[in-house]
Nucleic acid binder design. Structure first.
Length: 765
DNA sequence: GTTGCGCAGATTTTT
DNA sequence: TCTGCGCAAC
């Protein structure tokens, strides 16, 4: 008999209740993952369900990974290779690849991310002569996503509804036309966007009931995590899959629903009983994570929301430390408060990695990073790393997408002229028009032009362009051959890099920027190698298209060099969901920032979502919570005066103390040391005095050993000499470690940005 | 066809 | 402040 003693009463009941529809409402920190993992273990061990019959779906890759690992560690010796714990998106991608031909795709289809979606839309607008000022591509994107998130597709039962009537999707005929054109465009490119992955499966199931039946039979037990984040399309998908066995278990928390802007539909929780009247219902309300003080404060905040099923969080934990609200003069001061607080905590023995800093939007991280860097506090940013957004990376990925899917004209047009081959916009446009005329994909046409030059004499392709085209085709064909012969993705990659001239081009101009690019391309290579290794250990064949899929669907796994063992963690509140830290600092608690200005314009529902977001932030903290805000903030070049967030006043006074940091006395409650006050006035100096020379290594082994970088600490205002450009002054620094970038203003008047590790700089006294 | 400059507009949140 | 776009010059 499996040991369930480590579960509480409700958890245990939820685990044992395996058959029929059920919903677990799990409050923050109530052991949700633990329950889910035990339930799967229970199914496997007690009910002897083959892992092949279980499907567990999560929303994020991180959650899927975590759950998989935990199940693996619990089930030694159990055959788990068939157990599916994945995200909606990767599951649907896999399913679509297997069944692709049923819906007119081939299995090597490309997956378009958001920016590619925008590119397609821009192309369409251009073609129609619509300026981007008249209709913002973003607006179209939003509309298309709305349609897909609701699970509508052409030919679906509610097709008419989606086209004209659905009152949320209230757009005119032009939008609808563009939507249709967009769908055609993707289809001819053999590509699918994020939303299309889910909707594609719905369409497949609707049109081929036999296939649906096959999957229904296989997945006898369905588990859905983060149920509050599912959109309508995902809900319909789950509904279909579970129709036969009805063994569906959803786990969620309506108070942590923070993705409505991406289509998450809170009604999926509120309406569950309409679809499954006989459903069982469990509430996990005991919180194991946070101190009583934090729980009570957070409960008071979330209680202001009307759209709830209603849970009452409680805990056996101690009262714990009081919450601190910190009023700061401006954003720089706030960053300084954060820095000092971290140093203070670390001095008292807290490891860096037990401390997290949250903010409402990504742009807020910069100021904080700058300050942390000045004190050499190791930090890591979760999410927000845009490795795959870099130009050179996108270019090489486009090459590879074209190799796996030669109908992908978007990728082709991206790289046809990079490196510059003398095929500019004019030639491209000419080829595109011809391709459309001949019903060919762009690549097919180009290949045709190269092979049968005479047929295309009317195009008047210059000999220069022609030879560029044939060289290009030759390259693509040879790599396609490699891919076909199952050569490793990394070999294909290297071939492209060399033979396209991309690398040579970067090497030919010796600039620091190019060196950084080359470095990134190397990093991509090691990413590919890593992927290959992972495949091999999973006994899976490493193919290019699998690699491409893994990075479009999960960009968190990539390029996460674990540079420091023990860093402070920075992230947006959104990405903090599901995580916990002993010490949490939520920054920027100001009106129009958190809650965001946009949500304030859009009515009560959006405000409630912001409040849930704040609730999520608060409930990440285990021991102590700091809530900071600035009275002034530098926003696009100007200082804006900010009011403290309304959410602060929703916390009953007994749960917090209000302190001020920096600036003149204003709030009577504040307890301000004289020293801090002074430090604000000439803080630039104080930073450079205190920061660099302290011996960080002697006190604690967990601290980042700064000297290992072998570089001087650079701070704004420092005079330096650059071997090429001469003397200058550091204007600012960003990034950290090997990614540290430094902007220098030179005496001759130019300002340049360098990647630190390539830049020989001499610090002048 | 390519490069470089100047201006306008932008900030939620992400699979 | 930063980015992306359009336009003009080479």
């Amino acid at each position: 008999m499996m040991n369930l003693d480590y579960l509480n009463e409700v958890q245990r009941e939820a685990v044992k209740c395996t058959d029929g529809p059920m919903m677990i409402l799990a409050g923050a920190g109530s052991g949700k993952t633990r329950t889910l993992v035990s339930k799967i273990e229970y199914l496997l061990k007690e009910k002897k369900i083959p892992s092949y019959n279980i499907l567990a779906m999560t929303f994020s890759n991180r959650a899927a990974r975590e759950m998989r690992e935990r199940i693996q560690s619990l089930s030694e010796g159990m055959p788990l290779s068939q157990l599916l714990v994945t995200t909606f998106h990767s599951f649907c991608a896999r399913l679509l690849r297997t069944e692709a031909n049923y819906i007119g795709l081939s299995r090597n289809f490309s997956i378009y991310d958001d920016s590619e979606m925008i590119s397609v839309i821009k192309n369409i607008l251009n073609r129609r002569g619509i300026s981007q000022k008249e209709i913002h591509p973003q607006e179209i994107k939003y509309y298309i996503n709305l349609v897909k998130n609701k699970g509508y597709f052409k030919g679906c039962a509610d097709y008419e509804v989606f086209a004209k009537i659905d009152d949320e999707i209230d757009k005119d005929d032009l939008f609808y036309e563009i939507y249709e054109e967009y769908e055609r465009e993707l289809h001819t490119s053999n590509a699918v966007d994020f939303g299309g992955l889910i909707v594609g499966v719905l369409e497949l199931f609707a049109k081929h009931p036999k296939i649906l039946e096959r999957y229904q039979k296989r997945f006898k037990y369905l588990l859905v995590d983060e149920y509050q984040d599912t959109n309508r399309a995902q809900f319909l998908f789950v509904l279909l899959l579970s129709e036969v066995h009805k063994n569906i278990c959803v786990v969620g928390d309506e108070d942590q629903s923070i993705y409505s802007w991406r289509g998450a539909d809170i009604n999926n929780i509120l309406d569950f009983e309409n679809y499954f009247p006989e459903y069982q219902y469990f509430k996990l309300e005991q919180n194991y994570r946070s101190s009583k003080n934090i729980i009570d404060a957070a409960s008071h905040v979330i209680n202001q929301n009307r759209m709830r099923k209603g849970k009452v969080m409680w805990t056996d934990n101690q009262g714990g430390e009081i919450i601190e609200v910190i009023e700061c003069l401006d954003d720089t001061t706030e960053a300084k408060f954060i820095t000092e607080k971290i140093l203070e905590l670390v001095d008292s023995g807290v490891p860096y990695s037990k401390i997290a800093i949250f903010y409402r939007n990504n742009s807020q991280s910069r100021v904080i990073e700058d300050s942390l860097r000045k004190f050499r506090i190791p930090y890591k940013i979760v999410g927000g790393i845009k490795f795959y957004d870099r130009k050179e990376i996108k270019d090489l990925l486009s090459y590879m997408k074209l190799i796996t899917n030669d109908k992908d004209s978007l990728s082709l047009s991206r790289i046809i002229n990079s490196p510059a081959r003398g095929i500019g916009a004019v030639s491209l446009r000419k080829l595109e028009t011809e391709a459309i005329k001949n019903q060919l994909s762009l690549y097919e046409l180009i290949k045709d032009v190269v092979n049968q030059k005479d047929h295309y004499s009317h195009l008047k392709v210059s000999s220069k362009v022609f030879s560029a085209l044939s060289e290009f085709v030759e390259l693509i064909e040879s790599v396609k051959l490699m891919e076909k012969n199952e050569d490793l993705p990394s070999h294909c990659y290297e071939k492209i890099l060399e033979d396209s001239g991309y690398l040579g081009n970067l090497k030919s101009v010796k600039s620091y920027e190019n060196m950084a690019r080359i470095e990134n391309l190397k990093e991509l290579l090691s990413g590919i190698r890593q992927f290959e290794m992972a495949c091999i250990s999973n006994k899976e064949k490493p193919t290019l298209s699998l690699f491409l899929e893994s990075i479009t669907l999960d960009n968190s796994s990539a390029s996460e060099e674990e540079e420091y063992t023990d860093p402070v963690v920075l992230m947006t509140v959104h990405s903090s969901k599901g995580l916990e830290y002993e010490y949490v600092i939520v920054s920027g608690l100001e009106e129009n920032l958190f809650p965001s200005a946009m949500s304030l314009d859009e009515g009560e529902d959006r405000l409630e979502e912001e409040r849930r977001l704040f609730y999520v932030a608060m409930t990440r903290a285990m021991k102590k919570l700091y809530l900071s805000f600035s009275k002034g903030r530098l926003l696009w070049g100007k200082v804006q005066f900010q009011d403290p967030s309304r959410f602060l006043f929703e916390i009953p006074e007994e749960y917090y103390t209000w302190k001020a940091f920096g600036g003149r006395k204003k709030n009577p409650k504040k307890i301000l040391k004289k020293k801090t006050e002074d430090s604000y006035i000439d803080y630039g100096d104080e930073f450079s005095q205190v920061a660099p020379e302290e011996d960080f290594d002697s006190s604690s082994s967990t601290r980042y050993n700064a000297s290992s970088q072998g570089a001087d600490l650079l701070a704004s205002g420092l005079a330096v000499r650059h071997s090429l450009y001469g003397e200058g002054v550091v204007v600012r620094t960003e990034g950290y470690g090997t990614n540290e970038k430094v902007t220098i203003k030179f005496k001759q008047g130019t300002t340049k940005k360098f990647l630190r590790k390539y830049t020989p700089l001499e610090v002048l006294e």
